[in-house]
Write a protein that binds this DNA or RNA. Structure first.
Lengths: 159, 159
DNA sequence: CAAGATTGAGCCCTCAATCTTA
DNA sequence: TAAGATTGAGGGCTCAATCTTG
């Protein structure tokens, strides 16, 4: 007799992925919130810190899996906190860019230390280094297929 | 010279996991929403369908990574749609239970077919069967460590 | 008082519409 | 007209407070 469709391994796989993501997200937010940065905010700051300079709003939105609208408001909050600055582009006045401030860069460096400890406490106690590498490799293939813009920058690039 | 902490592989791993989850969630919601069920709703209906009978609100909340408050409202919507019914418990009048209706069960059976096709179109084109099994095994270890209540039912169980 | 569930207030996101510039 | 970004309206979630029952 055929297995019940409701127990299909593909449903289980997706369920495990979403549950893991929600669980981690929640665990991180509990630890990070007191420090004044949400997990979301840290992710944006990390991307801006790695870039170093200004990054297009639309690029940042695509990377962060946010709509342009959502990103505008998220950046607003970071600007209000003094962690990010907005820049306008002289060659294309339509465009807007976000750049991390020195204070933001300092905060990221500090927060990352605590964040890595959180990751070790959650992921590190479940998977050893080798398993973490395997998981990264598998997820990278999945991510590239599902959300390919996560690492892209606009071709119209520089300002 | 030591690697930049901002490029730590552990940050990358967590990033890949969250990006994959957001990406899938978004892809599924685009397809499911027109059918009248959100991805969230389908997940709750799936759990209720597998259980068959009434399930404690608090158990369902823990399984779905929702706060009791969030679950109350999510179930409200499903009740309004006629897909779920609320039951009260005679032996403990504090408790409340949710159970899937025949119409809800029918809808789940139909929605799962389309949902499996979506999964094949997103996950299936990125990972072959063997890789999917590997990913499931790794995620199961992570999920059990991060969100252990995902499959539990209350010990005070039956009504 | 504790446990289970619900409600009110507030935050953050998305969709659609708008404004500005190319 | 299209591209880039922002704003208004509305939905869903969380936190804290409340209500009911053990």
């Amino acid at each position: 007799m055929p297995a019940d469709p409701l127990d299909d391994p593909r449903l289980t796989l997706v369920g495990l992925l979403l549950e893991s993501a929600w669980g981690l997200q929640r665990a991180f937010d509990r630890r990070l919130a007191p420090d004044g940065v949400t997990n979301q905010g840290l992710e944006l700051l990390l991307r801006l810190a790695r870039t170093g300079g200004p990054l297009r709003m639309s690029d940042l939105a695509a990377q962060a899996t946010l709509t342009p609208s959502g990103l505008t408001r998220a950046v607003d909050r970071l600007v209000d906190s003094g962690l990010v600055e907005r820049h306008s582009c002289d060659t294309d006045r339509r465009g807007s860019f976000a750049a991390i401030t020195p204070r933001g860069a300092r905060l990221v460096r500090e927060a990352v230390v605590a964040h890595l400890a959180d990751i070790d406490a959650t992921v590190g106690t479940a998977l050893d280094r080798k398993e973490q590498r395997q998981l990264s490799a598998l997820l990278r293939k999945l991510r590239d297929n599902v959300h390919p813009t996560a690492t892209q920058r606009s071709l119209s690039g520089g300002c």
